[in-house]
Amino acid sequence: MPAEPSSLDSVDLSAFKILDPLTIASINLPPSKVAKVHKGLTTLPVRSNSLAVFSPEPIFHYLFVKPHDPKYTPIINAHPNINGRSLYISSIPFDSTVHHLRALFTAIGGGRIETVIFSDEPLPPRPSTVDEKNPIKNKKRKRSNPAATNKQTAETAPWPSLWNRKLHLPGTTAVAVFVDKAACDLAMKAVTENSTDNPNLDYFWGSGIGKGNLIPELGKTRYEDHMERMFPDPEWAQKFVDDSLEAYDNRLKAEEEERRRKANEPDEDGFITVVRSSRPRPPPSAEEIAERLKKEEKRAKKGFYPDFYRFQLRELKKEQTKQLLSQFEDAKRQVRERKDARKHKS
């Protein structure tokens, strides 16, 4: 059994060299080697100083940008008015935020971004339109219960986030929605101008975000924070669970009531929906069992009355007649047999 390695000395790294500026320069992909347009998307190089500890030279990350066509996509439901004012960005860095992209487009002279939609995040809810804000009162419409709506929200309330900052998975794309079409056009123009054929672009990813937009740090502090977030405050947690389970119970009760109501009310065509009880009957309580037993005992004591109804008397008479007939037939047979036996003897 080997002794536990106490230091790096026990690991043979003779076949490796430290990532030095020369090595970084040999691996780094400069903009001059990257095509300006790749499969219809314009390449936008972005500098990064994440390897500054090894080399003062920046490394390049490449974004691929094109005007966004939101037709027939779920985004159009979330943002109905983004036609012509959004850009589609592929190969975004893993630590991208709205602030990063805002700062980027500000730096390259693009327009102002209203919002950014990332492919690995849920779409924001659709904003209510004027019609939805003032709905026409329809008498036939089911009565909605605002309290119930709130409780359902509590039931499906998400768990608190475990991370202070969302990191994007490889292959995530983004749609940057600008304030208007002009801003979007300006941004696309800036992207084209600052593409790989422009060697003067010196924007560093993450710079110019502004002090007001605090973005949590990566690294050790991120994981320390994550471990803290795994254990929510007990009081808050109790309330979260109580609200959630209460809302869930209420929903189940409401559904049960609705089901029962449907079982008693005819629909528009006059039919009554037959529903089967979905929930199993609860087990009988001790009192119920005792009552049932008492009833059965009483019935047993009372006994059975065979001549209570007329048909019972009628059937009784029939049975007696049948019995008499069979006895008569038996007696006749016995007499005949005796006679025959006497004849044979003689």
């Binding site: 219809g40 390049f60 996509t73 749609v175 690294g219």
Partner: peptide, 29 residues
């Protein structure tokens, strides 16, 4: 690269494996 435009939208192929960016990611994370 899966894109946000759904199944009907165009698909973009990311043909540039950038090792240095991966090293940057490791250092950042």
């Amino acid at each position: 690269v899966p894109n946000i435009e759904g199944l009907g939208g165009p698909r973009v192929e990311n043909a540039i494996p950038n090792k240095i960016v991966v090293f940057g990611l490791i250092m950042e994370l």
